[in-house]
């Protein structure tokens, strides 16, 4: 089968998943439970995606743990996203150079 057909199916399915709720859900949600639920969803999604996957993100649990620790400390003090993200990578790199 042509690779172009595979790519079209991939792209089509992925687009529809994003587009349908975003475009056709117009009502404001009134239910207190649902509003609370949607308020917590971003934090839950990010936490589930980060832990434990972050420890496998650099090819070494030790360098990943160092990067995670640095990210947690800097985020705790409210540093900007880019600073936290790059400092985590720098910490992993520096730790890796000692291994």
């Amino acid at each position: 089968m042509s690779t172009a057909v595979y790519i079209a199916v991939m792209a089509g399915v992925t687009y529809l998943i994003r587009m349908l709720p975003f475009t056709f859900f117009r009502r404001e949600i009134k239910s207190g439970f649902l509003r609370s639920f949607l308020y917590y969803i971003p934090y839950a999604v990010l936490a589930a995606m980060t832990i434990p996957a972050i420890f496998y993100s650099t090819g070494s649990i030790i360098t990943a743990a160092a990067g995670t620790a640095v990210a947690l400390i800097l985020a705790w003090f409210d540093l900007p996203l880019i600073a936290v993200a790059l400092a985590a990578a720098a910490a992993a790199f520096v730790t890796g150079s000692f291994l």
Partner: peptide, 28 residues
């Protein structure tokens, strides 16, 4: 060594998003 270290960048960004509200709100 560089590409490996770069693997953590996106996760670092996620941490920077969810940690500040974790500090402020027991619910989060």
């Amino acid at each position: 060594s560089v590409t490996n270290a770069m693997g953590i960048v996106l996760y670092g960004m996620f941490i920077a998003i969810f940690i500040p509200p974790v500090r402020k709100h027991k619910s989060v």
